[in-house]
Amino acid sequence: MPSAHERRLALRAALGGPGPLVLPGVTDALGARLAEQAGFAAVYATGAGLANAQHGVPDLGLISLGEVVDHVSRLTESTVLPVVVDADTGYGGPLATMRTVRLLERAGAAALQLEDQEMPKRCGHFDDHRLIPAAHMQAKIAAALEARTDEAMVLVARTDARSAESLDAAIERAHAYAEAGADVLFVEAPRSVEELARVGTELAGLPLVVNVVEGGKTPQLPLAEYAALGFDVALFANYLMRSMLSAGRDALAHLAATGETASRAEAMATWQERQELFHLPEFGAAEAHYDRPWSAPGVRS
């Protein structure tokens, strides 16, 4: 398993790669393992997905820092991939943000995303956002940078000003956050290709994130078009969760209607696929290795 520092370096390398980094969102260890198996370079610990899938509540800032830290610890233990963490508002002002950074860094996060909404925050593709002053967000970014002990950890600064104010305000804020030291910029919810082009042109210089929300406010485009518009990261925060939701609903409807599962065998992962995904053969080998008479080196048994 690579160290947290090695994963942070790997994420930085991926951000500087020749093409956009495709970042799938995951809500649990299963999702992280599937993303790893599929060959992705990193995963995104989605805050909305955590709220929905693990707690059954909407993305309205209801999940606590402690719950996020526990969740991230499980994710980083379950995959070799760098984990980009949605840290919402940092859970308070600059001092609270410093504590958030330290706890999530200790949990193994490769990157943290902070946003400029007031608490409690709302999903970026909802309406009625309220923002903190840009200078306050700059102070939180500065505090976050001071708090990290590993300079390889990436800081993503997101602004929701496009929804709360205007695209001009969002671009102005993003420039301010870059000046404060953010590593990556994330202008949430541009409304058109023209708006995406403005973001890509006027914020060129740092890696830029586009959040692809199926049915959301930002146009869905081929990856090459996002790249041509200047975006370095294509975030698909809840594609996996929504796909699994649909598949699970179909599976349960079948069980409720028929009382059997044998006829859907081809729509399920096999027993062997499941066990291999969770490394049962390796655990079995380790168990067999230690399930034998043992003595310390140089000591006769």
Rank of each mutant, 00 (worst) to 15 (best):
R8A: 06
L11V: 11
R12H: 08
L15I: 09
L23T: 07
T27I: 12
R33S: 12
Q37H: 13
G39L: 04
A41H: 09
Y44C: 04
A45G: 06
G47W: 05
A48C: 04
A48W: 14
H55K: 08
E67D: 15
V80M: 05
L81M: 12
V83G: 13
D86M: 14
D88Q: 02
Y91M: 03
A96F: 02
T97V: 15
A110S: 14
E115R: 10
D116Y: 03
D116K: 05
D127Y: 02
H129G: 13
A134N: 01
K140E: 07
K140G: 03
K140L: 00
E146V: 09
A169R: 08
I171K: 04
A176E: 11
Y177A: 06
G181K: 07
S192G: 03
E194D: 14
E195V: 00
L196E: 01
A204L: 04
V209D: 01
V212Y: 01
G216T: 11
P222T: 12
L223D: 02
Y226L: 08
D232V: 06
V233K: 06
A234R: 01
L235W: 09
L235I: 11
A237Y: 12
A237H: 13
L245P: 00
L245G: 00
A247Q: 13
R249I: 12
L252N: 05
L252S: 07
G259D: 10
E260K: 10
S263N: 04
A267G: 01
M268D: 02
E273V: 09
Q275T: 10
H289Y: 13
P293Q: 07
S295M: 02
